[in-house]
Amino acid sequence: MAKFLNTSATNFFLEELIKNAKERLILISPYLRLNDRIKELLEDKDRLKIDIRIVYGKSDLHPEEIKWLQKLDYVRLSFCKNLHAKCYLNESECIISSLNLYEFSQINNNEMGILVRKYEDDEVFKDAYEEAQRIIRISDEVRISLDEVKADAVVAEAERGEESSTLTKLTTSKLAAKHKLKTADVLEKLTAKGFLTLNENGKHFLTEQGKSSGGEFRSSQYGGYFLWNENTEIE
Rank of each mutant, 00 (worst) to 15 (best):
Y102L: 01
Q209D: 15
S78N: 07
T183W: 11
L48G: 00
I26W: 07
L89Y: 04
S220Q: 10
N100F: 02
S29A: 01
S98D: 15
T168S: 10
A151I: 08
K49A: 05
R117M: 15
Y88M: 00
V75P: 04
V75S: 03
S105K: 03
E235W: 00
K150F: 12
I135N: 06
Y222E: 14
K71Y: 05
G202E: 13
S92W: 13
K118L: 10
S105G: 00
I28T: 09
K49V: 01
T10L: 05
D46I: 08
I50G: 05
R53D: 15
R117H: 15
R143Q: 09
V186N: 11
E188N: 10
L101M: 15
Y225E: 03
D60N: 11
R160F: 15
A184S: 13
E23I: 02
G215S: 01
F104P: 03
G194F: 01
L61C: 13
G214D: 07
D60Y: 11
T172V: 08
E148D: 15
K118Q: 12
K169E: 13
S173G: 00
E159Y: 10
E15V: 06
D185Q: 13
K22D: 10
K49S: 10
E157A: 14
A177W: 10
F79S: 04
H84W: 14
V124E: 14
E23H: 01
V149Q: 05
Q209M: 05
D51C: 01
F12S: 05
C94N: 02
F4C: 01
Y74E: 10
L25M: 00
G57W: 10
T168M: 07
W68S: 12
H179K: 11
D51L: 06
I28D: 05
Y74C: 09
E159R: 12
Q221R: 09
T197N: 09
L170K: 03
P63C: 01
K22N: 09
N11A: 05
G202L: 10
E43I: 01
R53S: 14
R53Q: 13
L101Y: 12
E123F: 08
I28P: 09
A128W: 06
L206Y: 06
L5D: 14
F226W: 14
D185R: 07
Y129K: 12
S173N: 06
E200P: 02
L69E: 07
Y88G: 00
V186Y: 09
Y119A: 06
F12C: 01
G194C: 02
E159H: 12
G194D: 07
E103T: 07
L34M: 15
H179D: 10
T171Y: 06
D152M: 11
L167T: 13
I144Y: 15
R134H: 12
R76M: 12
Y56G: 07
F13K: 11
F125W: 11
T191Y: 11
Q209F: 02
A192L: 12
L17Y: 02
A192M: 06
L89N: 00
